[in-house]
């Protein structure tokens, strides 16, 4: 009888631990941020001329790295072994660059054929 109770308690503890681990992690927010930035870059690449767009979410928990082919989102840039990475394909001659570390808000700026990820300029 006691053995059965112990086994049931262990089973309950394991399932609650799994649910808590997924629920308390920032994994979903990290992936959503990477997908959002990817879509913003695809949209910016299609805008003729220059543009500046602010990412409206608070992303102080994350760090971002933008390369010409992908965007990576880290929870902790020194220890995160599984960043959220999303690839995109820019037209020929276009490039993407920039990085931000735990700053909010962040902006994407298109200058001619360059897309730059940076902290938003201070508004006066």
């Amino acid at each position: 009888m006691i053995f059965e109770i112990i086994v049931v308690c262990i089973g309950i503890y394991i399932t609650i631990s799994i649910a808590h681990a997924y629920g308390s992690s920032l994994l979903t927010a990290k992936i959503n941020s990477a997908e959002d930035i990817k879509m913003m870059i695809n949209t910016l690449a299609a805008v003729p001329g220059d543009a500046l767009v602010e990412y409206p979410k608070n992303v102080t928990e994350f760090s971002f790295i933008l390369t010409p082919n992908s965007v990576s989102v880290f929870e902790n840039e020194q220890t995160d072994q599984s960043p959220a990475v999303r690839a995109f394909f820019l037209p020929q001659g276009y490039t993407a660059e920039g990085s931000v570390i735990r700053i909010s808000p962040i902006c994407l700026e298109k200058k001619s054929k360059r897309i730059i990820l940076e902290a938003c300029p201070q508004q006066e």
Binding site: A46, P48, P91, Y94
Partner: peptide, 12 residues
């Protein structure tokens, strides 16, 4: 979003 570039960019 990707298809926007086809009709908006001279590179396309």
């Amino acid at each position: 979003l990707i298809a926007l570039r086809f009709v908006n960019l001279p590179e396309c």
